[in-house]
Design a binder for these strands. Structure first.
Ligand SMILES: [Mn+2]
Ligand SMILES: [Mn+2]
Ligand SMILES: [Zn+2]
Ligand SMILES: [Zn+2]
Lengths: 152, 152
DNA sequence: CATAGTATTGACACCAAGTCTCAATGTCAA
DNA sequence: TTGACATTGAGACTTGGTGTCAATACTATG
C-alpha cells in the first residue's frame, strides 16, 4: 500500500472523510523536503483553499503524521513523522534532520521532576549541529565557508 | 546597583547607546510575570514605538538578558534570564516556570552526535508538567478541575 | 434512488508576531 | 559644541495562522 493510502486509511479510521482537497494536501506534504512550512505546502497544492491546507496540516499533526521541528533561531517547521514521541538532530548548515528516540532523557526528566515536585506530562528536545557532509565541506574547502543551503 | 542599572551597564559595555526608550522597555520587561509576549511589554510601555520595543527585545535576547520559553503547544514566550544556557520546567496549568541547568543532557547529546557523526552546536530542552500547587488543587478539589489560570 | 443531516470547503476578514524603510531625532566622544 | 553615527517612530508589509458563514459534498438510512 502506498504512503498516501496508508495515511488516508488512518484518517478514515479516526472518522474523518476522505476528500479530494485532503488527498491533494497529503500528496504535497509527501513531496516536501526534510522540513517545510505550511506556505511551502500551499504553493505545491492547486485548487485547495488556504484554510483547508491549514486545517489539513492540523489534522495531520493531531494524527502524528507530521510533527514540528524547532529550528535553531526559533522557527517552527513541519516534517513527516511516522513515529510518536521522538526528537530531532538538525544540521544548521544544510537543514538535514535525523529523528531519534533512544534519547534516554526520560530518567533525567523524572529525577528533575521529583526534585521539583512536578508531575511530568512530556518534554521537547532538539539538538543542533553540523552533519558530516557539511563538516567535511567546511574543513576541506575553506572558500565555501559561507555556503548556506538552507535559507533563513 | 538596581536590576535596571545592571542591565543598562551590560548594554553600554557592548557599545550600544542608552536611550529613554530602551530604559522604558527594560523597566516594562522587569515588571512582567514568569513569561510574557512582546505584546505584553508593548502594552506596559508608553511613549515607545512598536519597532523599538521589538528591537530592544531582540537586543535583550542577544545579550542573554531574556530567553525564550517554548510552551506546550508551540508558542514562544519571553522570560527574564540571568544565566546563559539553561532549560525550563513549565507548569501547563498555572504557567509557572523553573529554570534548570543541571540537566546532564550533554553526555547523551554527545553520544548521539558521535553515533550520527554530527558536530554539536547546542540543544534545546523544555519539560512540561504540573507543579505541586496545581496538582494539589486538582486532587483535593475535583470541582476545580478545569481551572486554567494561564490563558491560551 | 432520494434525501436529510453532517462534515467539509473556500473566500475573506481578521489576528499575532515580527520586519523594513526612511526621514527625523538623539547620543556621545572629541 | 558639534559632527558622526546610532536610534527612533509611523506605518506599510510579511508570515503564519484562526474564525465566519454560506455553499457544497458525503454518507447513512428509508
Ligand atoms: Mn524523549
Ligand atoms: Mn542542557
Ligand atoms: Zn548538513
Ligand atoms: Zn502550576
Amino acid at each position: 500500500m502506498s504512503d498516501i493510502e496508508l495515511i488516508i486509511e488512518r484518517i478514515e479510521l479516526r472518522g474523518h472523510r476522505i476528500t479530494e482537497g485532503r488527498r491533494r494536501v497529503i500528496q504535497a506534504v509527501l513531496k516536501q523536503p526534510s522540513h517545510f512550512t505550511v506556505e511551502d505546502v500551499l504553493q505545491s497544492t492547486r485548487r485547495v483553499g488556504r484554510a483547508t491546507v491549514f486545517r489539513t496540516m492540523r489534522l495531520l499533526l493531531d494524527l502524528n503524521i507530521v510533527c514540528r521541528v524547532l529550528l535553531d533561531g526559533g522557527n517552527l517547521h513541519y516534517r513527516i513523522s511516522s513515529r510518536g514521541h521522538h526528537h530531532h538532530l538538525v544540521c544548521n548548515d544544510c537543514g538535514r534532520v535525523e529523528d531519534f528516540t533512544g534519547c534516554d532523557v526520560e530518567p533525567l526528566v523524572q529525577a528533575l521532576a521529583a526534585a521539583m515536585k512536578y508531575e511530568i506530562d512530556g518534554h521537547w528536545l532538539e539538538v543542533y549541529g553540523r552533519c558530516e557532509a557539511c563538516r567535511l565541506l567546511r574543513s576541506g574547502r575553506p572558500e565555501s565557508q559561507t555556503t548556506q543551503v538552507l535559507s533563513q
